[in-house]
Amino acid sequence: MLPWIHLATATAPQGDRLRLFRRGDEFSIRLDGGNELMNSRLGGSEEALATLALERLAGRPGPRVLIGGLGMGFTLRAAQAAAPRGARLIVAEIVPDLVSWAGQHMAAVFGDCLSDPRVEVRTGDVGAAIRAETAGFDAILLDVDNGPDGLTVADNDALYADAGLLAARRALAAGGILAVWSAAPDAGFSKRLSRSGFDVTTHTVRAGRTRRGARHTIWIAVRQGG
């Protein structure tokens, strides 16, 4: 078996160190200590995040979609495949090095998706992008810090606690979609979504594209009211 080759290291704003590895045509991003955050062969659930959300926007000719986290681009590429020509896809990535890796080390993974005129990549906190908008997005897709479990980290309250969900609701147009990826189910988060003014459905999907791999959870939350 081919060995893993260390390609690059980045430091996130919170201080976490991320390492990029390659083995043949497979890529892996890991935290210091070896915990894998993402792998180029396991993007099925991240793709489902976009597909499930964009299905709900069928008929909107120019949806404006905010994607929280670039990662390896799984969610972005799935959104590109599902979105109409007039869509605008805004990606907020808090770690600048990940954007650089996309065009350098992982160019074979990303292809030409970042040159799509519908795509805008912003380096910054997706929470700030949400709080800056009022009824400005048709969908917000969040794949940040393993999902609502991120509440164990104070910085993630801005996304997954009550105040963060209310901010997301304000940022969405009528009938807009908040889609959230998580490594695990969370009944408490479903309740928070409901009391924040969303009609919620929960989906269990596989990490792999062939019904293999870990089971992940996706919430599709539709903004209620005007």
Results as ranks from 00 to 15, higher is better:
L159R: 00
G73Y: 07
R209M: 09
G213F: 13
D199S: 13
L151K: 01
D199K: 11
D162E: 15
L166M: 08
R30Y: 03
E55A: 15
A12V: 08
A129M: 13
D25H: 12
F74M: 09
R118N: 10
L31S: 05
R41C: 09
R169N: 00
R56D: 06
W219D: 11
R223M: 07
P185W: 00
V99Y: 00
L193S: 03
G103A: 08
L52N: 02
R211P: 01
D16S: 12
L49T: 02
G136Y: 08
F198A: 06
A81Y: 03
A184P: 04
G176N: 03
V121A: 11
L7N: 01
D186M: 09
R206S: 15
W219Q: 11
G213W: 12
R122G: 06
H216S: 09
T75R: 02
L166Y: 00
L98K: 00
M38H: 02
T152G: 11
G33E: 10
L114N: 06
R212V: 10
L114V: 08
R122S: 08
R22H: 07
R30F: 03
V153R: 15
T210H: 13
D145I: 10
A132C: 07
G34S: 13
L89G: 05
A102G: 09
G69E: 07
R56H: 12
A129F: 14
S40D: 08
I130N: 04
G164I: 06
A108G: 12
N146F: 12
P185M: 04
D157K: 11
R56A: 13
G59M: 14
L178Q: 04
A179Y: 04
V200H: 00
G213H: 12
D97C: 05
A92W: 00
R41A: 13
R206L: 12
V180Q: 00
L2Y: 06
Q80P: 02
Q104D: 14
A48Q: 13
R212Q: 12
E120P: 03
V205F: 05
T51A: 13
N35Q: 14
P61H: 01
D112Y: 06
N39E: 05
S194T: 15
E26P: 04
G197W: 07
T134Q: 11
F74A: 11
F137P: 07
G44K: 09
G175M: 11
E133M: 13
E46V: 03
A87L: 10
L31H: 11
I218E: 01
G33Y: 09
S45P: 01
M72H: 07
T204E: 15
L178T: 05
V126D: 00
A135C: 07
V222E: 14
A83D: 08
R30P: 04
W101R: 02
A158C: 14
G127N: 06
G136D: 12
V109S: 01
P3C: 11
G68Y: 00
G226W: 08
A79E: 09
A167F: 00
F189D: 01
D116F: 06
V205Q: 10
I67F: 01
G127V: 07
L42D: 10
E93R: 05
L193C: 08
A83Q: 04
L89D: 07
A83R: 00
A171C: 08
P96Q: 13
G208D: 06
R170W: 03
G164S: 09
A48V: 03
A79Q: 07
V126T: 02
